[in-house]
Design a binder for these strands. Sequence first.
DNA 1: TTGAAAGCGCTACCAC
DNA 2: GTGGTAGCGCTTTCAA
Lengths: 361, 361
Amino acid sequence: MSKRHEHRSRSRLSDVAERAGVSAVTVSRAIRHPEMVTPKLRKRIDKAIHELAYVPNRAASMLASSRTRLIGVVVSSLTNGVFADFLRALHDLFLPEGFHVMVLDSRYVPGEEETAIATLLGQHPEAMIVSSIDQTPRARQLLKRSGIPVVQTMELAKSPIDINIGLSHEAAGYAATRYLIELGHRRIGVIGAPRDSRLHNRIAGYERAMREAGLDMTGLAGRSSNPSSVVLGGELMRGLVERCADLEAVFCCNDDLALGALFECHRLGISVPERISLIGFNDLEYAACAYPSLTSVLTPRYEMGRKTAEIVLEIIRGSGKRPPRRRIDIGFKIMERESTRRRDIRPPVRTARNARQSEQV
Amino acid sequence: MSKRHEHRSRSRLSDVAERAGVSAVTVSRAIRHPEMVTPKLRKRIDKAIHELAYVPNRAASMLASSRTRLIGVVVSSLTNGVFADFLRALHDLFLPEGFHVMVLDSRYVPGEEETAIATLLGQHPEAMIVSSIDQTPRARQLLKRSGIPVVQTMELAKSPIDINIGLSHEAAGYAATRYLIELGHRRIGVIGAPRDSRLHNRIAGYERAMREAGLDMTGLAGRSSNPSSVVLGGELMRGLVERCADLEAVFCCNDDLALGALFECHRLGISVPERISLIGFNDLEYAACAYPSLTSVLTPRYEMGRKTAEIVLEIIRGSGKRPPRRRIDIGFKIMERESTRRRDIRPPVRTARNARQSEQV
DNA sequence: TTGAAAGCGCTACCAC
DNA sequence: GTGGTAGCGCTTTCAA
């Protein structure tokens, strides 16, 4: 026995081998390639493994095979439901293939993302997945030098580091706003907590749609540098309503904000959608069953995670060959529900200003 | 050079040693215990490390030292906000100490939890944290045999595997129900999706409170084997209202269900709390700003994660010594808000049955 | 189909 | 303070 670990409790491959009356290599094979071992032996080995509660030592197999079977993942937030779906997809796809997913979060801070990337890279993952596109220069360099597949997800990048799977948040923000405009709304506000480029881009999309439609935006933006939350949605909504008496619709940059805004409207006695239309973003679970149900922009997060994992697995299995398309737009979809309504259906409570603006179209 | 890795690109400890003109052991020490090496040598070694872009091979050091600096964590769900707070605390406490947190989820399935535990143990974590107490016998065995600190969290166990930090969900369910009873309610329903012992225990607490108060429970339980969700909360609430015309209050076994129930009440035109009082569980972020704001049972999840990490770090640093108390009750707290109200304040719309029951007290 | 031997890159132990 | 040596537990190679 070893000099160092006199009281080792954990059983090794050789312990299993001894108990099953075979050699260690055979046990190793029985675990990794069961089809290469006689059913009879396999059975004996399985029994021994079970009896000894044997768990392979990954450190040893990593060292021997120089395969870590680790996937590094950095998300912006662990608390946000958006990333939960994405992570679930990654787990669903990677675990059955024998890969481990190591997740770190950046809390929406680029510096923390850089640290997380460096930390993860130190574990020598076989691929890195980051849920953003705006890495620091050093983080980009680290990822590029690593030589492993790198996937930037959630949004579309102009110059991807390697692979990029996401959607255009600018286009989605634009579409959400266009949707409100086509419903006949003119006084359209936006509330958001722009902590990352995704939020910035959604707001940029809103602004483009408003500009193109020749609509005035002054006083219609409710922003905060605090993290998005339901509470914040309520606060920003209240601010907007107070500043802008003739508000007709609001693009909420995510569903948490939308939920808060909806509650605040209830509280203030503002009926949705009769007086104000509300559209959210991400289409989280509660959007569909809120009262009124929340119109929202569906972002296919599980799908994005699935696609990401599929591409990574393909590259790893294909010994590094990259797929033809390095940039994949996964799209989005507006889910129309009760919280938005055509303006002409609602009771005509028009201010002079509303009337004037309506004539612009 | 090795026969197997002819094209090795990563430099090793011995490469650095050669370049710095020292032995490999000295390089190893210079990295781990810089104070044990002469400044002069240290400088030369640092230079060599930098020039070779040397990154230690964790697999090798794990194997050699049997120190992985890994913490294995199994939560019931990655999507549930409850575990997000808990995980955040773990990351907050462990990362600065140089530990990595590996998280897997069980989706509330004991079999998947067992798999997750086995998988995690294969990484040789220095501690395991599981967010439940009802492990399968095999999982318990694996954990016990592992010889590392094991913390079962979220709920209190009768016979903990090792350390246990949590709260009594039975007591919390009892307290929530007592709270409603003391508010003067008699026809109190419960909705829940009992997928784990926590939910079972909350319902058991409800039942004990009802029994003790001599209240009838027939037709007042809305259960489902589907996973908890906002949608499900709405469905169960509707079922309850349809079955029980004189419903006065509902204990929702978690806030997602409570949110769904609240929306459903809005939808059905049932005013909360005027006609029905609603109490949730967990006190998630949105509870405080819902309309009406949701009374809920606060479970200190971040605190629980913090305490867990502190104890684990203490044990690891103290070379395995366990703290005096192996079972820590972290408690809970009822957050009184607008969704619950005294029965005698509401307009007297009493059925014969209500009147009769009121006299029981 | 199975097994023996030789490392993977690092650290613990002990000598100097 | 520094270095030699012997593994850590597994997989790869090659022979049987």
